[in-house]
């Protein structure tokens, strides 16, 4: 039996047990013209030799592998974007904290000299307390500019030798600081680290 006759049951659909070798040889030689070069081409022959149960498995396999590749790459891309967003948010938060530290430093520098007297009272009482602090200017402590950012004082609550400062930038970022005061001059001698708070709606800064 040559290779054509042994392969014939797979692509001609005959039962080999019922036919002899000469029949397949004759049939194969008869069909050689119909099969053209595919019969004689070893590569095409391998395709033809596969059973029908395996026919058409390459395309689904390729589609599956492609789907896995694309889904995997999409997942990795999502992870990288998430990391980038996290880094961007962290940088933005640190930048805001740095600006709010500068605001606290600016408040401490402004609250020296005549304005230090005002730190004895809460910020709500400053208009009336200005009479007890001659030469002081409460609006100087209520707002200012650091760099190109405007800030405003939200609240100042003094206690014995310290006070709670709450300030807000023009973009709505808010923070509070614990300020240590000189018990004699009421000037700020120490500023705590920034305590960021939730962004509140932007207040109008004149």
């Amino acid at each position: 039996m040559n290779w054509i006759s042994s392969a014939s049951p797979l692509w001609l659909g005959f039962d080999e047990s019922k036919e002899d070798d000469s029949f397949f040889l004759n049939e194969a030689q008869t069909l050689r013209g119909m099969l053209h070069s595919a019969v004689m081409n070893p590569l095409h022959c391998q395709f033809l030799l596969r059973p029908r149960s395996q026919a058409g498995f390459v395309l689904p396999l390729a589609l599956t592998v492609s789907a896995v590749l694309l889904l995997g790459s999409a997942s990795i891309h999502t992870l990288s974007l998430q990391k980038r967003l996290r880094i961007h948010a962290s940088h933005h938060r640190q930048l805001g904290a740095d600006q709010l530290r500068s605001v606290a430093q600016s408040f401490a520098v402004t609250a020296r000299g005549l304005e230090a007297c005002l730190l004895q009272w809460p910020s709500l009482d400053w208009p009336g307390a200005a009479l007890d602090c001659p030469g002081s200017d409460p609006p100087k402590l209520s707002r200012g500019v650091v760099g190109e950012k405007r800030w405003s004082l939200l609240d100042w609550q003094p206690s014995t030798d310290r006070g709670q400062l709450k300030v807000q930038l023009a973009d709505g970022r808010t923070s509070s600081f614990l300020l240590v005061l000189d018990p004699l001059t009421f000037e700020v001698i120490e500023i705590s680290d920034v305590q960021l708070q939730a962004r509140v709606p932007q207040l109008e800064v004149e």
């Binding site: 596969r50 026919a55 058409g56 390459v58 395309l59 396999l61 492609s66 990795i76």
Partner: peptide, 28 residues
């Protein structure tokens, strides 16, 4: 399995592999 199936599968695999490689490079 036909030749057309092999060609289409190759094109699909090449395209998806190329896209995945580009995305992986960008992610890296």
């Amino acid at each position: 399995m036909t030749l057309l199936e092999v060609v289409v599968s190759s094109v699909v695999l090449a395209g998806s592999s190329s896209a995945a490689l580009g995305v992986w490079n960008q992610s890296a």
